[in-house]
């Protein structure tokens, strides 16, 4: 069943001014429950505008967004309810931290949701555990944390609302490689336990290849591709025309194929590539 369905979605900035710009054009999409969607696109392609329409932060110029089959703008006064169901982690979310302690900051979402004290405590601790924040950190000021910890605290603030759909806009931007991997694996761990739907925007093709069930490619506001990572990344040329990359290992394998070696398309990880090369060498009788 589809959790989110998007129909003919359009958004235009600055309507009736000289600065009019179409950010999203006729976008159609259906996201299944429990799916991980990777969203890639060049800077300024309309990714951020698109994801902000999913939880009603931006009202589409035309077209509709359906959440569990219901139009989210049917009752504009109750749009706030949608935001608890579609959690949104912005780029550099650490800049939204504001409260005295990390604990209080994480509880901001659940409190707005109107949960009781006991429930809040439970969800806050659970969310903190998911992102790997220790109990001592919860009582510190968010401004005393390190960059990576701040990022975790901010993400926990959204996870604590227990959304059915979690949208993450470049959650790993600006983190060191270790931090990136750790954060990604924590998000995936959370996904496996909570079994919710995740839409993740990223510029790291490696990350997307690793975790996404389907990849959607947006170019100049239009949906260009929507398929499994293997299929999308096998079209390296087309992606490069849009100013996008494919994972490095995929590039190598595509280059091998071009040279006439019989390797399959859409190799996404080093492990897959390793097996593929071993098979090839075996076939040729070299090992």
């Amino acid at each position: 069943m589809s959790v989110i369905e998007v129909k003919d979605l359009c958004y235009t900035y600055g309507i009736n001014t000289p600065f009019e710009k179409k950010a999203v054009i006729d976008l159609n999409l259906s996201v299944n429950e429990g799916e991980v969607i990777g969203l890639i696109g060049h800077t300024g392609s309309g990714k951020s505008t698109f994801v902000q329409m999913l939880n009603g932060l931006i009202k589409p110029t035309s077209g509709k967004v359906f959440l569990n089959g219901e139009d989210i703008w049917e009752k504009p006064k109750e749009i706030r309810k949608i935001r608890f169901k579609v959690g949104m982690v912005f780029q550099y979310p650490e800049y939204q931290l504001f409260d005295e302690t990390v604990y209080k900051d994480i509880s901001f979402g659940p409190m707005n949701k109107g949960l009781g004290e006991k429930e809040i405590d439970e969800t806050v601790r659970k969310a903190a555990k998911f992102v790997g924040l220790s109990d001592e950190l919860l009582n510190q000021s968010p401004f005393d944390l390190s960059g990576g910890e701040k990022r975790r605290a901010a993400i926990a603030g959204v996870i604590a609302m227990d959304p059915d759909v979690l949208v993450l806009d470049e959650p790993t931007a600006g983190l060191d490689p270790m931090g990136r991997n750790l954060l990604l694996s924590q998000i995936m761990q959370y996904h496996r336990e909570r079994k919710n739907t995740i839409i993740i925007v990223s510029h790291s093709m490696e990350d997307i290849a690793k975790i996404a069930d389907r990849v959607m490619v947006i170019n100049s506001g239009k949906l260009e591709m929507l398929d499994t990572p293997a299929k999308v990344f096998s079209e390296a040329e087309r992606l490069e025309k849009m100013g996008l990359e494919v994972p490095q290992i995929t590039k190598i394998m595509l280059a091998l194929k071009e040279k006439g070696y019989e390797v399959s398309d859409g190799i996404l990880t080093v492990e897959q590539a390793f097996l593929e090369v071993v098979n090839l060498l075996k076939k040729e009788g070299k090992i």
Partner: peptide, 27 residues
């Protein structure tokens, strides 16, 4: 940007009286 981020966390900045609105600006 910050307003959007806090709205995404369910902050209510539109409804309520003046005092409530001012308080809602803290985040």
């Amino acid at each position: 940007k910050i307003m959007s981020a806090q709205k995404a966390r369910g902050a209510d900045m539109e409804s309520g009286g003046l005092i409530k609105k001012v308080k809602a600006m803290t985040p």
